[in-house]
């Protein structure tokens, strides 16, 4: 089962002919992902490492039956790449690109209303269903197939840390995904939590947030109202100074809003098991999830 991606997913890569694009395409393919096509305007008809390249997403879909896309194009062209993938009617678009202008994403987000496509990202590590499909830049070997834990996060390497600790405790994963560190993104915490709640293989969830915005507060309230599975939560940025953008475009405390303290409070009040210190996350999950199951 898992969520959003599995062994049936057929992936095309937008920006496959770039250095990063090619490297991560190979990493995904080596992990077992079915990569069926690449798209780079003007390079249609070529092939890279045996993967056919097309001029447009529409042509790639028509010829190969791709139903998902990984976007690794530079920031000035990324918003348009998302729109092209949405227009071609793909089920899933995973945008890895970091540094897309916020107004571009504001337009994309509004343009996508009513479309059938799910967007993950941008500025994210991607999504992996261990043992089945990896669309993104995360290291495959740290994951353990078969569940029972789902992981959703706003971060990249912090997610790897969490997955590594879960694996170290003998806790496998159903699906792990990063929803991105930008202020405007596609799939949000609640979308993922709902999918995990509905997925019979997922028995527990780890949710990793950070300063900025109010997505964690909204997700916490949703969890209390809708979720029966246990959730462990972590928030990065307790020591972040206000008014400074901490790497991620969306990670900023402004006007006293978006603090880690407020997010932790919302998590606690809504029955989420809060992890106080990153070093103990794996052990806490072991405790909480063993009790629950």
């Amino acid at each position: 089962m898992a969520i959003f991606v599995n062994r049936e997913t057929r992936v095309l890569v937008q920006g496959i002919t770039g250095k990063e694009g090619l490297f991560h395409t190979e990493q995904c393919r080596n992990y077992g992902t079915t990569i069926v096509a690449g798209v780079t305007p003007g390079k249609g008809g070529q092939s890279v490492n045996g993967i056919p390249v097309f001029n447009s997403v529409a042509a790639a879909c028509r010829e190969t039956g791709a139903n998902a896309s990984m976007i690794v194009v530079p920031p000035p062209f990324a918003a348009e790449a998302i729109l092209e993938a949405v227009d071609a009617g793909l089920d899933l678009v995973v945008c890895i690109t970091e540094g897309i202008p916020v107004l571009d994403m504001l337009r994309v987000k509004n343009a996508m209303k009513g479309s059938r496509t799910r967007l993950i990202g941008p500025n994210c590590p991607g999504i992996i269903t261990p043992g089945e499909c990896k669309i993104g830049i995360m290291p495959g070997p740290i994951h353990t197939p078969g569940g029972p834990v789902g992981v959703v996060s706003r971060s990249g390497t912090l997610t790897y840390e969490v997955v590594h600790q879960l694996t170290g405790q003998g806790l496998g994963q159903t699906t792990c995904l990063g929803i991105g560190g930008d202020p405007i993104n596609g799939t949000d915490f609640i979308d993922c939590l709902r999918a995990f709640q509905d997925d019979p293989e997922t028995e527990a969830v780890v949710m990793v947030g950070e300063i900025g915005g109010s997505a964690e507060e909204e997700a916490s309230a949703w969890i209390k109202a809708n979720m029966s599975k246990p959730v462990v939560g972590f928030i990065a940025g307790l020591t972040a100074p206000p008014g400074r953008r901490m790497g991620h475009a969306g990670a900023i405390v402004s006007g006293g809003k978006g603090t880690a303290a407020a997010k932790l409070k919302a998590m606690r009040e809504n029955g989420i098991h809060v992890c106080e210190s990153l070093g103990s996350l794996g052990r806490l999950c072991r405790e909480v999830f063993t009790k629950a199951t």
Binding site: S155, E161, G181, G237, T239, R244, G247, A251, A260, L278
Partner: peptide
Amino acid sequence: MVNGAGLAMATMDLIKQAGVEPANF
């Protein structure tokens, strides 16, 4: 010194929790 923004923030928090203060992100 950390790779990735989320892990870098979490590392600053860890330094503080160890009883010392972070000098930077």
